[in-house]
Amino acid sequence: MAIIDPRHAAKQLIYERIFRSATLTAAILVLLLLGGVAVSLVRGSWPALSHFRFAFVTREIWNPVTDEFGALAPIYGTVVTSLIAMAIAVPTGFGIALFLTELCPPLLKRPIGVAVELLAAVPSIIFGIWGLFVLAPVLQRHVQPWLIDHAAAIPGIDKLFMGPPYGIGILTAGFVLAIMVLPFIAATVRDVFDTVPPMLKESGYGLGATTWEVIWNVVVPHSRVGIVGGVMLGLGRALGETMAVTFVIGNAHRISSSLLAPGTTISSSIANEFTEAVGDLYTSSLIALGLLLFFITFSVIAAAQAMLRRLERRALLAL
C-alpha cells in the first residue's frame, strides 16, 4: 500500500520549484542576451555617434590618422555585395528547390538534399580562402576581362565594369556570398514547396498543366510568403557574413562606380581593423558600424522569421 509521506511530497515540491525556475531563468537569459547585445553596442558606439552625429552614416571619409570616420562606404559595400549575391543565389536556389521537389528521382533526393545542406555547414573562412586562391584568379583571367570588353559598348553598364581586373573586389565578394547563401535559400524554399498540399498540385496536373505551369501557377502563389521569408533569411546571412568577404573584398574604404574595384563591407571593416584600431574614437566608430549591422540584419531576419511563422501557422490550419 502506498502511503504518501508528507515530508517526501514537500521535498518533491521544492525540487520542482528549483527545476522550473532553472528552466525559466535559462529562457529569460536568451531574452537578456539580445537586449545585452543591443545595450552594449549602443554604449560602445556612443563616443563615435555623439561626436559625428548623423554625419556618421552619410560621409564616405574613413581616416584613422585625422580621426574622421564615416560609414557610407561600408554600408554601400554591404548592400551592393548582398544584392549581387541575391541576384545570383535566388534564381539558383529556386531552381535547386524546384529540382528537388518536382524532378529529382526519389533515389537521389536525399543525397542531393544532404549535399546542399553540407554546403551550408562549411565554415565561412573556407569559402574565404577558396574565393581568394581559386575563384578570384579564375574571375581575373577569364570572366572580368570579358565583362570589361563587352560592357564598354553599352552606355550605362560600362561604368559598372571599368578599370583593371584585380580579381578581388565587390563583384568577387558578391559571388562568394552567393555560393554561401545558396544552400540556405535552396533548403528553405524546398521546405516551403513541400508544404503545398499534393491535392492542389494534382488538380493542376489533372487540368493538363505542364510541370512548370503547376510550379508557377499553383506552388509559387501558395508558398509566396515562405519564399520571401527564405530569401530574406538568406539576405540576413549575406549582410552579416564576415570572413568569406574579408578575404576577397580588398578592404578599400571608398565607393567606386565599378563593381570590379575593391571595396569594403561593415563586417569586413570590423574584422580587418578592430584589433589594430588605436584610440577611442576609432574603436568606437568600428563598434558603431557593428551597431548599424545589428539593426540592419535584425530587421531583415525578424521580418523573415515573422513571414515563415505565418506560413507555419497556415500549414497547421490546413492540416
Binding site: 539580445l34 547585445v37 560602445g44 549582410l239 564576415t242 563598434i287 540584419t297
Partner: peptide, 22 residues
C-alpha cells in the same frame, strides 16, 4: 523567447564577438 532565439540563430557572429568584447 522562441522568436528571439530564431533571430539569434541567424545573427551575424561578428556582432556576438563585439558584444563579448564590450
Amino acid at each position: 523567447v522562441r522568436f528571439i532565439n530564431d533571430v539569434l540563430l541567424s545573427a551575424p557572429s561578428i556582432i556576438i564577438g563585439l558584444f563579448i568584447y564590450e
